[in-house]
């Protein structure tokens, strides 16, 4: 097992290194220039442009810029944002909390609800409940999340006035203690509902179909022939086998946790990474963009390692194949 984990970690590091190179190249290849955007004019004077370009080290060759970047990275320095002159790491840290709060809670809720519904519907396949849930899962799956979010705002905020439309806290009143958490919860409900509603169908369909598949396998028929009770077969044999694909999807989802809920964040003005990232792209803030992409690559690599390890633990056949 230790050997297996070691191999996975090496692969993970390779992925991060390759993505640093790719990110850097792709960002430099895209049209547009941060200095031009910074100047705020359609066509800034050449002198102003040259001074700013030199100030941000963009007058050096792309290769030198890359060497400098990697050198600083090795020292743990992600650079300084061209936009706000603040350290990139500090800016990301300010924004990542709300994103994690929204993305993690909704990922777990969607996983639980989706899987529970999937299991229930698989066991009572063809029932009226199964038909209703399966049918609506397609509806929510095909719904764009920004549209669903806007609909929820119009219903629950603008028309009914039950919940705030956007943001994370009430700006007029400074709540403290328990009331503060309640206030955040109130603001969290609509974006969270939006994300949960569009994510549940994934987990639901995967759980449902893998359980149906496992239940039709020969060894289950054999177990039934031994006279073992349906619930015991299910709990002891079906569940463990059928949950594997769900864990993969959950892991992949978590890997994109930093950016996966960006659009919903923008719709609800949730102060996370969403609009922050979009802004960085529009203004070609290279250091900030590189920082966000680096974070993304690292989280993808780490989640892949974790998922692989859990997989190996749940299904020892994987370890045998590796040898």
């Amino acid at each position: 097992m230790a050997n297996y984990i070691q191999k996975r970690i090496i692969t993970g590091i390779l992925i991060i290194v390759v993505s640093i190179v790719l990110n850097f190249t792709l960002i430099k290849l895209s049209p547009g220039d941060p200095i031009r955007v910074l100047s705020g004019q359609d066509s800034p004077s050449p002198q102003m442009q040259a001074e700013l370009t030199a100030k941000y080290g963009l007058d050096q060759s792309v290769f030198m810029q890359f060497i400098n970047y990697v050198g600083n990275l090795a020292k743990g320095d992600l650079g300084v944002s061209i936009l706000s002159n603040q350290p990139v790491l500090k800016m990301i840290m300010e924004r990542i909390g709300p994103t994690l709060l929204l993305a993690l809670t909704t990922a777990i809720i969607a996983l639980i609800i989706g899987t529970a519904l999937g299991i229930y519907c698989a066991r009572y396949r063809g029932s009226r409940f199964d038909n209703i849930v399966s049918g609506s899962s397609y509806i929510f799956d095909s719904m764009p999340n920004f549209w669903l979010g806007m609909m929820l705002i119009m219903i629950f905020s603008s028309s009914l006035g039950w919940l705030p439309t956007s943001g994370m806290v009430d700006l007029r009143t400074n709540y403290t203690g328990f009331n503060y958490y309640l206030d955040v919860f109130k603001h969290w409900l609509l974006p969270a509902t939006t994300i949960v509603l569009v994510t549940v169908p994934y987990y639901f369909r995967i759980a449902r179909s893998s359980i149906i598949q496992v239940m039709s396998e020969d060894f289950i028929t054999t177990l039934r022939a031994t006279g073992m009770s349906e619930s015991r077969i299910f709990n002891k044999y079906v569940f463990k086998n059928a949950i594997l694909p769900t864990i993969t999807v959950f892991g992949i989802n978590l890997a994109y946790i930093v950016t996966g809920v960006a659009i919903v964040e923008i719709v609800f003005s949730w102060p996370g990474m969403g609009s922050f990232m979009l802004d960085a792209i529009h203004r070609r803030d290279y250091p900030l963009l590189m920082g966000i992409y680096l974070l993304l690559s690292i989280s993808v690599a780490i989640m892949m390692i974790i998922v692989d390890v859990i997989y190996a633990y749940l299904d020892p056949r994987i370890l045998y194949k590796e040898r």
């Binding site: 705030p164 956007s166 943001g167 003005s269």
Partner: peptide, 20 residues
């Protein structure tokens, strides 16, 4: 005087209607 930062114009108008 508080400036409320809204990243989406359509949401901002709903927040305005809602009195936020």
């Amino acid at each position: 005087l508080i400036f409320s930062i809204n990243s989406d114009q359509d949401t901002q108008i709903q927040a305005f209607y809602n009195g936020e």
